[in-house]
């Protein structure tokens, strides 16, 4: 039997120092601490601030009115039903909260699939629709991605943010995942493990199945993006400073990128 761990801390810094000593391997791997605080009090404060209508209008933008509730939902600090009820209480008509409720539905959906799949959630649910076989994908993430030194301003910022904050906007997750799997041809499992290591909301259900959705092992086609799409939804904050602007890996129409990335694939771009 192990002894009780401490519960009394004078400050957050004292707690963090204690945990660095108690979990030296975790601290050695990645010693950063997020500004996002755990706990029901913080979760309730954030729940008070959700704005379902602005969420629906702006959620795809990196500076949109997203809720930042995912770490609390992932650990059951808040239930999906509670968040849904809070969203409905903020709007005049239920339809005004429909987008947020459907996004909660995605988590419910992934959880139901996880219940059914168990550890199979780590296996390709379907073949890739990219023209490549599973064995064509590398099993490990390249260091330049992990360390944020690919030279692509957006990708490197997402990598650093993931490590420093344990959070990425959903759109950034999709772009980063697409880059890993389709531009670098790395197996989605390697990316999923990387995200689980760092994301405060890391959960095999939403995480792995979303990676599979991007990879096309749980969707009809691979998810890709182009520079124009990323520039629009980031308000250009990365592209403006990127030395590769105008000649980066993401330049081109979706059709051009699809042909370039998946020359042996059947089916359409999108």
């Amino acid at each position: 039997m192990s002894s009780n761990m401490r519960r009394d801390f004078a400050s957050r810094d004292e707690l963090i120092d204690y945990l660095r000593r108690e979990f030296p391997q975790a601290a050695a791997r990645s010693g950063e601490v997020s500004a996002t605080r755990g706990g029901r009090r913080e979760a309730e404060a954030r729940l008070q601030r959700i704005d379902p209508q602005r969420y629906a209008a702006t959620r795809n933008y990196l500076d949109g009115a997203v809720t930042h509730l995912s770490p609390y939902i992932r650990h059951g600090v808040l239930s999906l039903a509670e968040v849904r009820d809070a969203a409905l209480s903020r709007v005049r008509r239920p339809a005004d909260a429909a987008k947020l409720v459907s996004e909660l539905g995605w988590r419910d959906y992934w959880q139901r699939l996880y219940e059914r799949l168990g550890d199979e959630i780590w296996r390709d649910q379907e073949p890739y629709k990219t023209g490549y076989r599973a064995s064509d994908y590398a099993s490990e993430l390249p260091d330049d991605i992990i360390e944020g030194r690919t030279g692509l301003a957006c990708i490197d910022a997402f990598s650093r943010d993931l490590r420093a904050t344990g959070y990425l906007h959903n759109h950034a997750r999709m772009w980063l995942a697409a880059y890993v799997v389709h531009w670098r041809r790395v197996a989605w499992q390697a990316g999923a493990r990387w995200f689980l290591e760092h994301l405060l909301d890391g959960d095999p259900a939403s995480n792995n199945l979303s990676w599979q959705w991007v990879a096309s092992t749980f969707s009809h086609k691979p998810y890709i993006f182009n520079r124009e799409n990323l520039e629009r939804f980031t308000n250009g904050i990365y592209c403006r400073t990127c030395p590769l602007y105008g000649r980066c890996d993401f330049e081109g129409t979706y059709e051009e990128l699809h042909r370039r990335l998946f020359p042996n694939a059947t089916g359409n771009a999108g």
Binding site: A26, S30, S34, G166
Partner: peptide
């Protein structure tokens, strides 16, 4: 924690959640 290579920031977040629960904290 080792299998998933869980980072310190995730441990801190969960520990802060635990400190608001009437719970004894152990490991193993």
């Amino acid at each position: 924690l080792e299998e998933w290579r869980i980072s310190l920031k995730r441990i801190v977040f969960m520990y802060e959640c635990l400190l608001e629960l009437p719970v004894v904290i152990r490991r193993g």
